Simulated scan of single mutants.
Amino acid sequence: MRIDKLHTIDSTNDYLKRISKKENTQEDMVVWAKNQTAGRGQMGTKWMTQTDKNLTFSVYRKIQRITIDEQFFALMAASLAIKDVLTKLLIKNVRVKWPNDILTDNDKICGILIESVIKKGRLDAMIIGVGLNVNQTEWSHLPRATSIKKQTGIHFKLEEILQMLLEQFRHYVQLLIDGKFEKIKKDYENCLFKRNKPATFLKPNGEKFVGIIKGTTNSGKLILLQENDVLKEYDLKELQLLY
């Protein structure tokens, strides 16, 4: 697998999109940056990180055996891979806050951004962007941020954790290729933050309501149990989990 290690870049996801388009990339590729000046999360949010203290990288992977409708399974698989590695590193109570934040207890330790490469109306490849807090221990204006070092007291070598993550990604990519979608979805739902517990949600119009997370649809919508035992589905633009 080709690995490009850079000092400073705007966004590892954007870099891979440019390179894959320019070079018509056919091989798997990783770009790892010590510093991102314009790292992104879901819904256009920014991912801020201290230089050379955390892992900010993206993986370009050809995944032509799944369809556009099945692409949320790639996000589920990536979330599980990161959860597995964090658990091996003795991080406790690792959960996935729908759809793409990785928490330990109530604190965010990692974010994922997956973007699709569509060619001729078909899913050609996926770009998996990861921002993992490793050795940073202080954040301004982010009271619920944490890191591996803050949780364990251990200073880690970034490259060692990157290799662990890439190895676990390969495992889950193989599950995708083998069509193990039901297993991936079941494992993802089992580690959802606040699953089967009352939680408060916020709609874009400012309305708050209480619901119970029951799972997700195959396309990534959140399934909530609401008043009168009604099940409703929401996408990311329709609500925010307050916690």
Rank of each mutant, 00 (worst) to 15 (best):
K185Y: 09
F181H: 09
G44S: 04
I223C: 06
I177M: 07
D4G: 02
V30C: 01
T56M: 01
T146V: 08
Y243W: 08
L176K: 01
K83F: 05
K194A: 12
G153D: 09
N24H: 11
Q42F: 01
L165M: 07
N205E: 13
F181L: 10
G220W: 04
V117S: 05
W98S: 00
L158Y: 10
E27C: 02
K34N: 15
K53M: 13
K186P: 05
P198T: 07
Q240D: 11
L162E: 11
T216G: 01
L132H: 09
E189P: 12
E182S: 14
C191D: 04
D28P: 13
E207G: 05
F156G: 02
D4K: 07
D107Y: 14
K119I: 12
V230D: 13
V230L: 12
K214R: 15
L222A: 02
D105H: 14
W98Q: 02
K17A: 01
V94K: 03
I19W: 07
W32Q: 00
I112G: 02
R195S: 10
R144A: 06
F169E: 00
G179Y: 11
E70W: 03
K149M: 12
T56S: 05
K46G: 03
P99Y: 02
T137D: 08
K214E: 15
K21T: 12
W47R: 00
D84Q: 11
E227R: 14
S116V: 01
T49K: 10
D235N: 13
Q136S: 11
L86Q: 07
G121N: 09
D4Q: 06
N205V: 09
L113H: 01
E160D: 15
